[in-house]
């Protein structure tokens, strides 16, 4: 149930059809706290339950509706369970499940099990869709699914779990045409956010920077006017010319560069922005963690019909600031964020 680390070498994981000899190890696995927490196995699975459960898989094998495997290493040590918990041949769909024994966690066992099960589902069963149901809090298992090329389709909120408990369950799936995770890893890139800011922002940034430069250059002119020492005047004029050149370069480059960099995008699950020019920063925050959305319009921004939007999360390091969007876009964005976040629940920290 954990991601591989570098402590121990990855194990050689093999899947064998589940047999009676594996049952003691299966019972021990079911007794583990984390397994009981995230799987449908009862909290106190006794020998009787394990027998019944095994019989169900034996029947499923005969009826081709279920298939159980034991994951073992090269020496035959039991590592975990690899299950096709539901096979629907007619619809060509398979639901998978897995659990790793506590002693073998953190060595890529789950990843290997899922990879083999997925391949088996596509090649042996001919599945067109393979599905996983993962507790939203089971972060390790979600990581395994993500790395195995599964896509998170959504959350079944407060779905029935067991023993009268309810929990948020995520649906993950993989299709045969999905890219192989190995390829995906090697060519991973973050695309840029979809939306540009308002084109008026270019003029706005130019005017704002121009005002700053005018003050700076104006001060120099004043100093020049009141300086009469010949030697000093030469230096002052040089500084003045250099700052004027810098101002022209800054005004010509900065606003356009900024406009090309500044982008944002809101999806149902995340807010994504890019800002800066020489130094650029991309920030991504899950919508479920957003706490406040502020819009703010300074006097100059009002002249240009622009607004700033600040989206904060519980982290002081993570506010996303959107500069130079049009006022209408800002209002629409706030409305969208409000309706999306109203749908997500949780602590947001």
């Amino acid at each position: 149930m954990s991601a591989p680390s570098t402590t121990a070498p990855p194990l050689d994981v093999r899947l064998l059809p589940l047999a009676r000899e594996h049952l003691p190890a299966v019972q021990a696995l079911m007794a583990d706290r984390e397994v009981a927490q995230f799987t449908l196995f009862p909290v106190d699975a006794g020998q009787e339950f394990v027998e019944q459960w095994f019989a169900g898989y034996e029947r499923g094998r005969a009826e081709r509706t279920k298939q159980g495997f034991a994951a073992v290493d090269g020496s035959g040590t039991f590592l975990g369970l690899a299950l096709a918990v539901h096979i629907d041949e007619e619809r060509a769909e398979v639901e998978l499940g897995y659990a790793v024994a506590p002693a073998s966690r953190g060595r890529g066992v789950a990843a290997s099990i899922l990879e083999q099960l997925t391949r088996w589902s596509f090649n042996q069963v001919g599945a067109q869709r393979v599905q996983l149901t993962i507790d939203a809090a089971n972060i390790a298992s979600r990581a395994v699914a993500s790395r195995a090329g599964y896509h998170r389709e959504g959350v079944m909120r407060s779905s029935y779990f067991k023993d009268g408990q309810r929990s948020d369950a995520e649906i993950w799936s993989r299709l045969p045409r999905d890219p192989d995770p190995a390829d995906r890893r090697n060519a991973l890139a973050l695309r840029q956010p979809a939306n540009l800011v308002s084109p008026r922002a270019v003029l706005f940034w130019t005017v704002r920077a121009l005002l700053g430069w005018l003050i700076f250059i104006g001060l120099q002119v004043v100093i020049l006017a009141f300086t009469h020492t010949a030697g000093h005047q030469g230096v002052n004029i040089t500084i003045l010319i250099v700052s004027a050149l810098l101002a022209v370069a800054h005004l010509a480059i900065m606003p356009r560069w900024r406009y090309r960099v500044h982008r944002w995008e809101l999806t149902g699950t995340a807010f994504y922005s890019r800002s800066g020019w020489v130094t650029q920063e991309r920030r991504i925050a899950p919508v479920s963690r957003i706490q406040t959305v502020d819009t703010e319009r300074g006097p100059l921004e009002q002249v240009f019909g622009l607004a700033n939007v600040t989206v904060t999360t519980a982290s002081a390091a993570g506010p996303i600031k959107l500069r130079g969007v049009s006022a209408a876009t800002a209002d629409q964005l706030v409305a969208d964020l409000t309706s999306i976040t109203a749908r997500s629940e949780g602590d947001a920290t």
């Binding site: 995906r184 890139a189 973050l190 695309r191 999806t267 995340a270």
Partner: peptide
Amino acid sequence: SLDLADRTVPGLLDDFLVQRG
């Protein structure tokens, strides 16, 4: 970095990840 971010918070980057090239 993307790999680390993607594995740490699975699913968050999904909408924005693309194949390079």
